[in-house]
Amino acid sequence: MTRLSDERALWLSRHVLPHEPALRAWLSKRRIPGLEVDDLVQETYARLIVLENVSAIINPRAYVFQTAYSILINHVRRSRVVSFQTMHDIDQLGVMADEATPEDTLIGRDELYRLQQAISALPGKIRDVFVLRRVKGLSQREVAKSLNLSESTVEKHMSRGFFLLMGAFSHGGNDDSRTSRAWGTKLRTTNARKDSQRD
């Protein structure tokens, strides 16, 4: 059974999350029919969690890209029809996985700015809860007391906040589409239907 340690979660937050927008851009430029970028990214994270040890990974960005690449290759091998164009695109991915990381410095410099933007873009109550919890460092109980909410409501707001930030960070900035469907279960179902139609 696989469990996720705090150490690995911290490693993911430092060495994978910052490269996610680039990874997504890279994957979506070479769309393989029937494969969703979101699913590939989730599977990439899963592979990085089941690794026994990550301390020997010197260049996490290259490792992340190579992992996504091998997942892609596996999917293509399993599919029956592979066009010449698809194979060509996959080869391109292989070449790009070794590219250096010129923006590493900038990632460090701008990350707090991006976090501030993402938090500011959260809808009202979610943002209030998030600020008390993360900026002021209050416990869930203290937040509940100070905003006169139940603890379970505070937890639901935190969950929504995480969900929205997951969207924001995956696109390297603001994901307005996800913000607008934050509370819209109906909207999300509509999207789900669209997804299934596409399949």
């Binding site: 705090d6 993911l12 937050s13 994270y45 990085l48 976090l115 993360r134 960070f169």
Partner: peptide
């Protein structure tokens, strides 16, 4: 894993 990574990253706030 992504959700936990985001939750931990947001501690920097």
């Amino acid at each position: 894993g992504r959700a936990r990574a985001v939750a931990i990253h947001s501690e920097r706030a």
